[in-house]
Design a protein around this nucleic acid. Sequence first.
DNA 1: GTTCATCTGTGCCCCTCTCC
DNA 2: GGAGAGGGGCACAGATGAAC
Length: 360
Amino acid sequence: MTQFCLSFQNFRSHQRKAHTSEAAINNSLADVTRMTWKMMGLQGITGQDFKTTYLSLAGYEKLLAWFDKMDVNIKTVLNYTKNFMQFMKYVNIDMDLLLVSNDQGEFNRLSCLQIHISNSRSGLDSGVFELHKRQMNSKPMPPAPAEVKRVLTVAKDDFDRAMDELRKKDDSGPILTKTRVAFINRYITAYLCLGQGIRVGAAENMHGSEFQAAYNGERTLSDLGNPHIVVHVANHKTKVSQDCRIALNSYWTDIFYLYFRYVRIIIFRLKNATHPYFFTQSDGRHFKKVSDGIEKLQKQYKVAKITSSTARCAWETWVESRPEAQRKLVADYLCHSAEVARSHYKHGFAKTSIDALAAL
DNA sequence: GTTCATCTGTGCCCCTCTCC
DNA sequence: GGAGAGGGGCACAGATGAAC
């Protein structure tokens, strides 16, 4: 029997060496842990230690049945399986376990199990694709841009009042209550996510220094001659897009500057904060509950809940009626290719089907 | 067109903290 | 002291681009 608690630890360092983010590692390890414990439990194994022999075909099939019984979404089952396969591959090459030389039989057994799970995974993939097609066909049209931005409209007077207070401040002293700071953080990040379709990760990962660099640089003029700044967010990237950009007109440039000078800097001084991020909580910590914040803002102002994902869908769908050049511009700004926009965000097939019938 | 690999976002529960 | 806002963390779901 080969214990693999060692492998479990080494799996983390293995992923770190591959430059996988801590969030992704944690997510992957959590999935593997849950799967393993559940698999053991379903097989009646109550031991506190892990052994590779606990990983079995019967256990995996019982686990699939359990997921089915609990009505877990097939996408989730697929994600669990993917993470688990990655872990199994690692176990078989783990230099500390040395299964291939120390326990050839166990090495072969796990290799066979990997093949079987890989086959099951193909079935899950097909199921997810079918589900995706059904969702794309039945999903209703996303809200119109005005609806997406509703909370920004109804809360604007309160927000402008808060910023006016900041304009009258000098650089010293405590300035804002916890609630006030939370409101400002929520409104500004809601503007980025709902008003511009920026992903919450981009708002969360924007650095103070990135804003400073943009603010101190030259202004870029729009076609109408209005000055803008463009903040490059390097710490949020997808495979193709090397970075994310946040464009701000003169109104928002002023707002961001006020925030940076009278909220972030004073909080940093009072709380001895050191993190690099732009958005800061009243306690000095990194503000990273953007989607929660948007929901709470919408609840506070009694408007419909619209998430950042829905907002992206709404903007992508809205831009469908615009010229091709504009669609590409928007796709690029939202950090994905135009092809991705077509395959992942297009909605309203139900409506277009009815329109087509009417035209026949 | 479909599958694979990976990373990111959302919802919810529960605990802590602030303000009245 | 209590109500409710704020925040941490887990589980699940979705997004995204590359490879096949």
